[in-house]
Amino acid sequence: MSLIELHYDVPGDDFTRAGEASGSVKAQLKKLGFDPGVIRNVVIALYEGEINMVIHAGGGEIDVSIDPDQIRMVLRDHGPGIPDVALAMQEGYSTAPDNVRALGFGAGMGLPNIKKYTDEMRIDTEIGVGTTMYLRVDVKN
């Protein structure tokens, strides 16, 4: 059992609210006294994931487990799935429509950014069923 477990439902129909869960996790980690660098790594990865859920999957769920030595995140959606994960991991590759690009996202940096800021990133995806992303950020002394 982790020190703290948080759960969020991410609505898929309101882009303006995307980031609420990440902001809340940030506030919690700050309150718990985590290092600012660790907090930034967690919330940037989470925020990119949250944006992806809204853009591509009609929302989803986020679970965060906070321990003193690591923070684990599970982002689960029931969207269309990712046909080619290796391709999606390439910087600049994007399937986001123009209206999403106009909002400042969809540049094909989401998944690469998540990888950069985390110590572990695993994607389980099935076409027509959904995608689950497992992320871990270690607290290094």
């Binding site: 882009f15 303006t16 995307a18 980031g19 990440s22 925020y47 400042g104």
Partner: peptide, 16 residues
């Protein structure tokens, strides 16, 4: 930024 939407503020928030 020349972009004006709530995500600009949220991005700044995440980046301190």
């Amino acid at each position: 930024s020349g972009l004006v939407n709530p995500q600009v503020v949220r991005t700044a928030e995440m980046m301190d």
